[in-house]
Design a protein around this nucleic acid. Structure first.
Lengths: 335, 335
DNA sequence: TTGTAGGCGTTATCAC
DNA sequence: GTGATAACGCCTACAA
């Protein structure tokens, strides 16, 4: 069943059918109704491939997600897809993992499929070594790219970020102002966003005249970023004599590990140990007490990603970078 | 840059270029190399839309997910996408939400886009009223459908499920055998899978000569399925005089609520209250103590969904239904 | 082994 | 307002 069949049954040319389909104003009411009747009775739907070939677009956006199983990125995925769909764009998903090669492949694939645009999700997408981001530059020559939580200066690449540095700084200050002196900082990524958060932590301390100490900054690789490993590591730090009365983390899951540690050591939260997470994810409500966490406005970020992409596709002038401000959501894990 | 440009530069016909592209065996090594050289130097990539039009496929699978933000479904999404990609299929995502209309729309959209197949994710997809599943029947006439965790008898629909009933029954028996008499059952879905789990709970009790009691079965609507509401509800049940020494739930998050309840009431887990969840999700490790939970073999289920779909697409004969067996993962929340 | 030509199902540009 | 016809870029008989 194609446009020729319809045109025959309706006794008009395919051009007219096409016009009806795309409700062009240059069709008489009568023929329009006649054609519509045939279309409906046949349940005819135009062939998306043919249309794609002609228009050189299938209204598709590529969503590149390092890990769809991560609750935070999963939530972002849901927000993005929902919003794009609202504007009649479909989303092609590619879970690229953390490896650079796989990400390059993912982007390549999206180019191959002629997506109208791509969203690179999460701060891990931008590598510290600029050479490793060359493929993004390349892709952006043909296809608009929007970065969710990534910062990258390049033509046709648009960044939508949360000011991680400021949010982390304020959280640090909040901890100090509540009486904490020795704030342990746990983080899991050394990329741009990871650096910003670390900076924020240091700036927060310095703004309160506390000298940052390297021993209070602990890095976890991706594969160690789980509740158990964090707990064990904190116990070993404590056993080595490290003193800390607060834990600030770059990810909620690290904070959950800190909660586990406190329970193992019979430390009361927040009396003996304050804990602050990052992302305000569903993990926060699972803890006892519930986690104070930095909300980085994911819904707003995602909606803005979509709006930016749509703007670019309509050839409007769009801001190269948009910065949202995070918000500390205070719950039971802090004083 | 299209196939004509390449053929011209290489001094061959487009047919030959096409043959090289699809590495047909009927090309001499020499011309193949010559053509390849041109292709590489131009960075030519065949147009996916044109190819799609000709072959009537773009090697795309539609993934229909009620809620990508749900950790369990998010994990499934990641597994499915990864496995499909391994076989060079791309995935189109549609987060349909829980409403029937939206799901119908989602399926409709996938049909419109001529996906090669669809995976309907999660037990919520199949409605109790058979009339409401008519749209799936309709879709399956044209496109193979694989159900992840759904049971549905229909031509060209393939089901990959975990035996929820059996798993729940065994968990119930395990609780009884550890000395529990009053097992509270919390569930969140009345669809096929929800019914099976409920049956399993009842059968488990009866197999140990305990009479199921309606007061010990509590239903939570989707919007009440969160930690806080569950906790409050359990407190109110307790205040009304309901006695229970164990909680079995149809979803881990409900169990997290039970953990919260226990802490609020100063009940020790598992001494005063045993708790068993379902899905063995990341929430299990966040609790103190960690949750015992039913693992329904998600990775295996997803891989099998993909294998089934690929088999169907290769026109192999595939089993209409495959049943995996769940496994109780014992952790600190039970004796 | 290689080339020619027709078809895939649209949309868009012309005439009329 | 409507109809013929040429793109769009690829694949694939069939012919050479």
């Amino acid at each position: 069943m194609n446009i020729y069949d319809i045109s025959e049954k309706a006794g008009v040319s395919i051009a007219t059918v096409s016009r009806v389909l795309n409700n062009s104003p240059h069709v008489s009411k009568k023929t329009k109704e006649k054609v519509m009747a045939v279309i409906d009775s046949c349940g005819y739907v135009p062939n998306a491939f043919a249309r794609g070939l002609g228009l050189n677009t299938m209204k598709t956006i590529g969503l590149l997600c390092p890990n769809a199983a991560d609750p935070y990125l999963a939530q972002a995925l849901a927000y993005l897809e929902q919003e794009f769909r609202r504007f009649h764009y479909d989303c092609l998903l590619s879970c690229t993992g953390r490896e650079l090669d796989a990400r390059i492949q993912g982007v390549e694939l999206m180019k191959t499929r002629h997506v109208d645009g791509m969203v690179l999700m999460g701060s891990t997408f931008i590598e510290a070594k600029d050479k490793n981001n060359e493929y993004i530059r390349k892709a952006a020559e043909k296809t608009p790219v929007v970065l969710l939580n990534g910062s990258f200066q390049c033509d046709n690449v648009y960044c939508v970020v949360c000011d991680d540095q400021r949010a982390t700084m304020e959280a640090t200050q909040y901890l100090v102002d509540s009486g904490r002196k020795n704030i342990l900082y746990l983080y899991h990524s050394k990329n741009y966003s990871g650096q910003k958060k670390l900076n924020g932590y240091r700036m927060g301390l310095e703004s309160r005249n506390i000298k940052p100490q390297d021993s209070l900054v602990q890095f976890f690789t991706e594969d160690k970023m789980n509740v158990m490993d964090v707990k064990e590591h904190l116990i070993s730090l404590h056993d080595k004599g490290l003193v800390f009365d607060a834990v600030l983390t770059s990810e909620d899951i690290l904070s959950v590990g800190a909660v586990k540690y406190a329970r193992a050591m019979k430390l009361s939260i927040p009396k003996a140990l304050s804990i602050v997470g990052y992302n305000n994810s569903s993990f926060c409500l699972c803890c006892e007490p519930e986690l104070t966490s930095i909300d980085n406005m994911l819904k707003a970020l995602c909606d803005h990603c979509v709006a930016t992409m749509l703007g670019v596709l309509e050839e409007k002038q769009m801001p190269q970078k948009t910065v949202f401000t995070g918000e500390l959501v205070k719950r039971g894990s802090t004083l």
